[in-house]
Design a binder for these strands. Sequence first.
DNA 1: TCCCGTACTTCTACATTGTAGATAACCGGA
DNA 2: TCCGGTTATCTACAATGTAGAAGTACGGGA
Lengths: 112, 112
Amino acid sequence: MPKGDFLGAFEEIVLLALVHLGEDAYGMTIRREIEERAGRAVSIGAVYSTLDRLQAKGFVSSQYANGSEARRGRARRYFKLEPEGAKSLERSKEILANMRRGLEPESELTKS
Amino acid sequence: MPKGDFLGAFEEIVLLALVHLGEDAYGMTIRREIEERAGRAVSIGAVYSTLDRLQAKGFVSSQYANGSEARRGRARRYFKLEPEGAKSLERSKEILANMRRGLEPESELTKS
DNA sequence: TCCCGTACTTCTACATTGTAGATAACCGGA
DNA sequence: TCCGGTTATCTACAATGTAGAAGTACGGGA
């Protein structure tokens, strides 16, 4: 999509994971959420680059964790769904719903 | 998707248009179906190259119209959804359903 | 103090998918 | 034979999908 108007399949999945996670959304948890729900392995690199692109479009925003908590390792980068992202998610859902309208679950697909 | 395991957003749309059209699915009608349902302009080139790729994966098959009908212009290339394509469509639907499970239409998306 | 394991993020690279527009093929009629 | 209408093919490039190695940061133990 030259103009970034529509969401890609994986972008949509990432955004939905974000919604489920709420306040606790950062790289590792997002990855886990997707693997559990979609039942599919995802590399951490795939998650981050998608997140970066979504941020560049203004669909999500991110900020690093404040050091208050006593835990080891590098700072976490928390992601948050922005209004534009929610809109885009809504739009994707509608398009798919329109494309499916009138089709029964299995019957239609198997009819031919 | 390096291994062609999952459907892209546009591929899914094209496949669904195919299901709606049934016997009458060829380049131009597929394009029109998408434009009407998705409410979005699509170039004919976009449709064909996606169709070619889907065919290469075995998700759809195609055959040219027999010349019996009296109509002008170049031969039509009719497309048909193959079992593998239907399966893939099913799988895409399930993944998205799993990703959305537990989320209310608007409420959740707007809560943050 | 230095090294190490843990917890995360960044970076680099490349394959696949998305998209458009120009061009070619074919048909019947003027 | 030239022409307009109908449809498919080709070429090119931008955006998205995906992986894995490398880098950063912190606290604890030797």
